[in-house]
Design a protein around this nucleic acid. Sequence first.
DNA 1: CCTATATGGTACTGAATAGTACCAAGTCAA
DNA 2: TTGACTTGGTACTATTCAGTACCATATAGG
Lengths: 208, 208
Amino acid sequence: MAASQRRVPEERRQQIIDVAKKLFSERGYSKTSLEAILSQTGGSRRDIYDFFKDKQGLFDAVMHDLISTIVTGSQVPKETEFTDDVQSELERMGETFLTNMLSPIVVTTMRQFIAVATERQDLGKAAYQAGPAVLYERFKTYLDERVRRGDLELQDTGTAARMFIEMLKGDYQTRALMTGDSGMTPELRKTHVQEIVRIFLYGALPRS
Amino acid sequence: MAASQRRVPEERRQQIIDVAKKLFSERGYSKTSLEAILSQTGGSRRDIYDFFKDKQGLFDAVMHDLISTIVTGSQVPKETEFTDDVQSELERMGETFLTNMLSPIVVTTMRQFIAVATERQDLGKAAYQAGPAVLYERFKTYLDERVRRGDLELQDTGTAARMFIEMLKGDYQTRALMTGDSGMTPELRKTHVQEIVRIFLYGALPRS
DNA sequence: CCTATATGGTACTGAATAGTACCAAGTCAA
DNA sequence: TTGACTTGGTACTATTCAGTACCATATAGG
């Protein structure tokens, strides 16, 4: 009764999403024609309309796919080793954070959400919840544990987490978003992170 | 010989730019037809083509107009009173910074530049130079003077200026850009700024 | 009043493209 | 093999809109 599928629909669907994702981010929504997408996926125009209803629906699917990508590959180290060397730990996490935040994929993704934020606040909100909000929360959890262990003294770990991350970003993210070049280099990143950690600890370490 | 102008061309030009600026920011470039612009300015299509060559030229003119707006109304207090109360001074400046950075006009403008950054890095670079870069520089100058007077001890005023401003922004700007709502309230702003200034000074004040 | 110039307004054209219809070819079950 | 269904591919339609041409009107100078 149920017609057997000649192809796995999920594969096809995902392939369209992947190509569309690439083209939307390169050229923008309006400048990406369905022709352009189909020329890379092969297949018929009807695939798009069957799967996504219309172009707007495809766009939605792409954006939601991006959101789940953010969540899945989530830029935040979930586990840390809790060594005795808090400073090195923070530096390592800081480098990871910063590298991820300035990576082309993250920058491009953020740009997309910001670009459509006026018209689609729902997408922006979902992306913020899946991205930055998770980042803050995870780091806060880490700080909470450190405080519990007595390695750090912080009155408000939530605020401290945000400060640390914001200082870490510095203006590099803004530059990346606006100019396409964060101006970051591996060497610069290393010294920058060290400086931030120093400042952060200088205020956060228990006076001894 | 020189034909007298029935209207001042500059006025007309600026009027078109203003209307286009509004519509571009509301609907985006592609979704704004020249019809829509002309229906608000009156006059002929030819005005646009005479002044700006084509739609792309109009867009460029709008973006450059935005850049000079940023510079002119520049969000940074140029003069400060240099009272004895550094803390209050920083708090006042901080509130001004933050209010401006989260104002609809600034958020919308940043969005526009970020949205086109992929294709028009030149615009993004110019906007960054006219906006954030100036902000950092002005605040650095202020800190330099404070250090010279011995009110603050800072090894690197440039870094300190960026940190202060970044901490000030917190994630409010990101939220504003992505979700359209920074979540900021006057009360929250006041306590937030106070907290930031406290942290900043706690690390920057000379030990006495 | 009359001519030249500038400008408001409109009509037209050509190109791009979203969305639909349809056909042809391939695949699976019986 | 056959028939039902699926899918690749193309042709077509309708709409939007940038860019151009043109007409009509108004103003200034003589």
